[in-house]
């Protein structure tokens, strides 16, 4: 019976749905995390009776044929990149992006990665680095004797030095934007890599057309909406149950057939 296979595709889809939802809930307090959503599509259809086939020799045709679908498939699991909330932390090296863009990070392998999590730190030689110690690009070195560090909304890093009236600019943080940011390849540790689907990054100064602005001493929280996730979880669980009920029914029908004398 086709129904058995169809229902099993339904159960597999809901299982994946729950996997995605549970990852969202697990990352509810991850800095800069973007929630994901599983998108489903109907699978193939089998033509049992073609629409338009002639139904009599008087030239009448079948108005709508019979097409039986064979289940559901996962089309994609995509990130929803709307803005997360901004949380004040008071830490000088915490930066949040308000709007579009990613910080650029140099991986130890020499490759470039991108992140929205702006919880940066200082390295022993005064460089701005991520929580994992990877350099933020372009490299910015803060002098050891700096009294305070200021990052303005357009990414200029300025330091106050002892005995100097004016702030001194020591670097400029830039951002990368992508045509299709949902196509970025997630690497874990809040990092993403460029992919064929995302397209090449276009790099610019925060605040210029198309780029977001920076907020110092703030972090972007995850954009997971707890109520929304729990509701999806309930739907997924019920849909899973109903598909398992289909399997039971199909099984009962086959067992009835088996009892034929």
């Amino acid at each position: 019976m086709r129904a058995l296979g169809t229902a099993s595709t339904g159960m597999l889809a809901q299982q994946l749905n729950v996997d995605v939802i549970s990852n969202n809930i697990a990352n509810m307090t991850t800095t800069g995390f973007k929630r994901q959503r599983a998108e489903f599509q109907d699978l193939l259809y089998q033509d049992m009776r073609r629409a338009g086939a002639s139904s009599s020799d008087a030239g009448t045709i079948v108005p709508s044929g019979i097409q039986i679908g064979v289940g559901v498939k996962t089309a994609s699991v995509y990130r929803i990149t709307d803005q997360g909330g901004l949380e004040a932390t008071g830490n000088d090296f915490d930066l949040a992006i308000q709007g579009d863009g990613y910080f650029r990070v140099l991986l130890p392998s020499g490759e470039e990665a991108y992140t929205r999590a702006g919880s940066f730190q200082m390295s022993p030689n005064g460089e701005l680095v991520t929580q994992d110690g990877f350099t933020v690009l372009p490299a910015i070195t803060v002098p050891q004797d700096a009294l305070s560090v200021t990052v303005n909304s357009s990414g200029e890093v300025q330091v106050a030095l002892d005995g100097q009236v004016n702030l001194q600019t020591v670097g400029q943080i830039d951002l990368a934007i992508f045509f299709n940011e949902a196509g970025l390849q997630p690497q874990g540790d809040n990092l993403f890599k460029e992919s064929t689907a995302s397209g090449a990054p276009s790099i610019g100064v925060p605040g210029s057309t198309g780029f977001g602005t920076l907020r110092q001493r703030y972090l972007e929280t995850s954009n997971v909406n707890a109520v929304g996730e729990i509701t999806s979880l309930i739907t997924a669980q019920r849909a899973y149950e109903m598909n398992s009920k289909v399997i039971t029914t199909a099984d009962e029908m086959m067992s009835t057939t088996n009892q034929l004398k």
Binding site: R2, T6, T9, G10, F40, G69, G71, V72
Partner: peptide
């Protein structure tokens, strides 16, 4: 079965 499998299909 196909209808129920597609309960959450957009």
């Amino acid at each position: 079965a196909n209808n129920l499998a597609n309960m959450t299909t957009t």
